[in-house]
Design a binder for these strands. Structure first.
Lengths: 100, 100
DNA sequence: CAGTCAGTTAGACGTTTGTCTAACTATCGA
DNA sequence: TCGATAGTTAGACAAACGTCTAACTGACTG
């Protein structure tokens, strides 16, 4: 079968809450915005526009938070980190919000 | 001029963040869900399904948080409180999320 | 008016969260 | 192999948050 797409139609309540919390931090939302803007996967904490504002540790922490929420996938790529936006998860979240 | 509708197309960053935070608390989101379900304006802290779970004070606090975020309007109606869901604000929020 | 019922305010308390520094791991290039 | 660069982990700390109880305000009702 085609391995192309995970449907991920529905989020559990726990996932939903995690995403809400992840998005509730302005810096994190901004990061996600930047990530989603970079087409095939944005690269590296250090290259993120926010850098300079916060320490690498903080950035790393936020990134992990986004990952835990499932909004992002972090892929080690040699020395750097590839950050992949999980649009299906995000869309599922927005869709659920829109239901209300 | 017609006083019927506030357009409220755009949210400031501050408003956006406030709403995100308001929604990030599961109890609060559930409250909003209940409120939006009750057609012409849900009535009273005490009548909310959540009652029993949390104290009146906590409920009041959450309600005010929703109000501060602009998601809800609280109208004193004699002894009771009418809670009006501000759908235009909510929709503006979701729309902004969807833009990403 | 006195009592009751709906909701708010104030203050306290423990938990979670965002941030930092410092020390660590891992990868690449000279 | 050594040093630099990218990122993580651990631990500390202050600020924000959710919750409670207790005391208050305000409105209806006997």
């Amino acid at each position: 079968m085609a391995p192309s797409k995970k449907p991920k139609k529905t989020l559990t309540d726990k996932e939903f809450t995690r995403i809400s919390r992840a998005l509730a931090e302005p810096r994190r939302f901004q990061m996600l915005r930047d990530i989603s803007a970079g087409e095939g996967g944005c690269c590296a904490c250090v290259d993120m526009p926010q850098r300079g504002d916060v320490s690498a540790a903080t950035l790393s922490h936020h990134l992990k938070e986004l990952e835990t929420a499932g909004l992002v996938e972090l892929v080690r790529e040699g020395k750097y980190m590839k950050i992949v936006f999980e649009r299906d998860v995000y869309d599922a979240y927005v869709a659920r919000l829109a239901q209300l």
